[in-house]
Simulated scan of single mutants.
Amino acid sequence: MNPQPRPATDTAPGFSPDPDSLSYPERAATLHRPLPAGYNHLHHRTRIGTGRAAFERAGTAVTTFAMHRAAGLRVRAAGPRAEPGIRLGNALGVGRFEISVPCEVVWTAYESDLTGFAYGTRPGHPEQGEESFLVELDAQGAVWFTVTAFSRPATWYTRLAGPLVPFLQMRFARLCGRRLRRIAAG
């Protein structure tokens, strides 16, 4: 099963108020299937623990960007946790080789058994698209982490990298799952 927050309208709480700040038109498309055509698609789901406590720890790590930091990104966020409209900059690399990835939170899920968010790319990001990070507590008590994304190159160097970019994105999703498994374990 692919957990998804309940769909809502663009004017409902939980959605970014400024679609013009994004670098792609399909805002909040990670809420729906199929994902938009014309993009690379990513879906990764992994079990990270068991029980309410593990779910709470993992959900907090995802929505406070602690999971991203644990995976090696430098995160500068305009707020302490994911909320629609919060802008953040993730950075990877050092000095002249640093890649900055400006994003904006486009939707959130803060439910009893489902927690997470999606962010979309802003101008200046090397890709165009959206990525969601969800933690789910299922009926049997298993805790699952799911990453869903659609993206395409937005710069010359990501176009030049070709199939290497989706490969690296999947590696990052798996790394996030491993880091989150440790966090969920306490």
Results as ranks from 00 to 15, higher is better:
residue 39 Y to H: 07
residue 181 R to H: 04
residue 107 W to Q: 12
residue 87 R to S: 14
residue 74 R to C: 04
residue 66 A to M: 04
residue 54 A to M: 03
residue 126 P to D: 02
residue 182 R to Y: 03
residue 103 C to E: 12
residue 85 G to Y: 04
residue 185 A to M: 04
residue 88 L to N: 08
residue 39 Y to Q: 04
residue 23 S to T: 03
residue 49 G to S: 01
residue 116 G to T: 07
residue 86 I to V: 13
residue 38 G to L: 02
residue 164 L to T: 06
residue 176 C to T: 08
residue 36 P to R: 14
residue 9 T to Q: 09
residue 77 A to M: 05
residue 100 S to T: 15
residue 147 V to D: 01
residue 70 A to E: 01
residue 153 P to S: 14
residue 18 D to A: 12
residue 135 V to G: 01
residue 33 R to A: 15
residue 8 A to I: 10
residue 154 A to G: 11
residue 24 Y to L: 00
residue 17 P to S: 09
residue 99 I to K: 05
residue 25 P to S: 00
residue 39 Y to A: 06
residue 59 G to Y: 00
residue 2 N to P: 13
residue 183 I to T: 06
residue 86 I to N: 04
residue 90 N to M: 15
residue 1 M to Y: 09
residue 1 M to W: 10
residue 61 A to Y: 03
residue 180 L to P: 09
residue 62 V to W: 03
residue 107 W to E: 13
residue 52 R to G: 05
residue 66 A to C: 08
residue 178 R to D: 07
residue 113 D to V: 14
residue 51 G to P: 07
residue 27 R to N: 11
residue 155 T to N: 06
residue 144 W to E: 05
residue 9 T to G: 13
residue 14 G to Q: 03
residue 72 G to Y: 00
residue 174 R to P: 00
residue 28 A to Y: 06
residue 180 L to K: 02
residue 125 H to P: 00
residue 8 A to R: 14
residue 82 A to I: 02
residue 98 E to D: 11
residue 37 A to R: 13
residue 117 F to E: 05
residue 155 T to A: 10
residue 122 R to S: 05
residue 181 R to V: 02
residue 36 P to V: 10
residue 103 C to D: 08
residue 90 N to G: 15
residue 174 R to C: 11
residue 170 M to H: 12
residue 50 T to P: 03
residue 23 S to C: 06
residue 171 R to K: 13
residue 16 S to W: 06
residue 175 L to S: 13
residue 141 G to C: 01
residue 22 L to R: 06
residue 84 P to C: 00
residue 18 D to W: 14
residue 94 V to E: 08
residue 52 R to K: 08
residue 19 P to S: 04
residue 111 E to H: 03
residue 104 E to C: 05
residue 157 Y to N: 14
residue 122 R to T: 07
residue 115 T to K: 07
residue 100 S to G: 15
residue 58 A to W: 03
residue 151 S to L: 08
residue 136 E to Y: 10
residue 131 E to W: 07
residue 145 F to G: 03
residue 33 R to E: 15
residue 19 P to L: 09
residue 49 G to Q: 01
residue 19 P to C: 09
residue 114 L to F: 10
residue 67 M to G: 04
residue 55 F to S: 03
residue 70 A to K: 01
residue 9 T to K: 11
residue 135 V to N: 01
residue 110 Y to Q: 12
residue 70 A to M: 02
residue 11 T to I: 14
residue 176 C to I: 12
residue 78 A to M: 09
residue 105 V to W: 02
residue 34 P to Q: 10
residue 168 L to G: 13
residue 131 E to G: 04
residue 166 P to H: 12
residue 68 H to M: 10
residue 84 P to I: 00
residue 100 S to R: 15
residue 56 E to D: 12
residue 148 T to S: 04
residue 87 R to V: 15
residue 168 L to W: 15
residue 116 G to M: 02
residue 68 H to Y: 01
residue 102 P to H: 00
residue 154 A to Y: 04
residue 131 E to Y: 02
residue 129 G to R: 11
residue 23 S to P: 13
residue 16 S to Q: 11
residue 34 P to Y: 11
residue 127 E to L: 13
residue 163 P to I: 12
residue 145 F to I: 01
residue 148 T to N: 09
residue 56 E to G: 04
residue 40 N to I: 12
residue 60 T to R: 08
residue 21 S to K: 14
residue 120 G to P: 00
residue 77 A to D: 11
residue 69 R to F: 14
residue 117 F to K: 08
residue 78 A to H: 03
residue 147 V to Y: 02
residue 38 G to M: 02
residue 85 G to P: 00
residue 44 H to I: 14
residue 43 H to M: 14
residue 126 P to K: 00
